[in-house]
């Protein structure tokens, strides 16, 4: 086993909530996402169809939790896994799981925060690697209700 790359500085980040990101769930965003996937259910496209099924508005398709608000002066989007100071040059997205607490619909504004929950060091066919596990919590901005959580991991090697 090679020496651990998980420094005190990295370990100190465990369980610490990162900055807030604001996501807008718009009708157009829902339709674009649903269309890109190939969904055929009108609940993702048409307000009347969604309301007929008991939703407040167009339903956000599975995996869509809004589009982060972009401003031109913001730093470029941080590529997944590049937020931590890890001494490996390459990163792969290892996987993603979404958990829904409440339906997410067009018109919702969602605030997310991500924290690192675990580091795992392994040696595999691609050599030594660090797997970083993260949890993101999504809250509706108007009332702070948790609507969803995302669990993801990145593989650094």
């Amino acid at each position: 086993m090679t020496e651990s790359v998980v420094t005190e500085a990295l370990r100190a980040q465990l369980g610490v909530d990162g900055p807030e990101t604001v996501h807008e769930v718009t009708s157009t965003g829902c339709r674009m996402f649903a269309r890109a996937v190939g969904h055929t259910d009108l609940v993702f496209y048409d307000r009347d169809a969604a309301r007929h099924r008991g939703y407040r508005d167009i339903l956000a398709p599975p995996g869509y939790l809004g589009t982060p608000v972009y401003l031109p002066r913001m730093a470029g989007a941080v590529r997944v896994g590049k937020d931590l100071d890890v001494p490996y040059p390459r990163v792969l997205n290892g996987g993603t799981t979404y958990e829904y607490v409440e339906p997410v619909c067009a018109g919702d504004v969602i605030v997310s925060r991500t924290r690192t929950t675990e580091f795992q060091e392994r040696t595999g066919s691609i050599g030594p690697m660090l797997i970083v596990f993260r949890e993101t919590t999504y809250r509706r901005q108007t009332d702070g209700t948790v609507v969803a959580r995302m669990y993801g991991n990145t593989i650094h090697y």
Binding site: H39, P62, Y64, T96
Partner: peptide
């Protein structure tokens, strides 16, 4: 993530 979204469509 698109493949994950396909699994979302499968289930939906």
């Amino acid at each position: 993530a698109l493949k994950n979204a396909f699994l979302g469509q499968l289930l939906h």
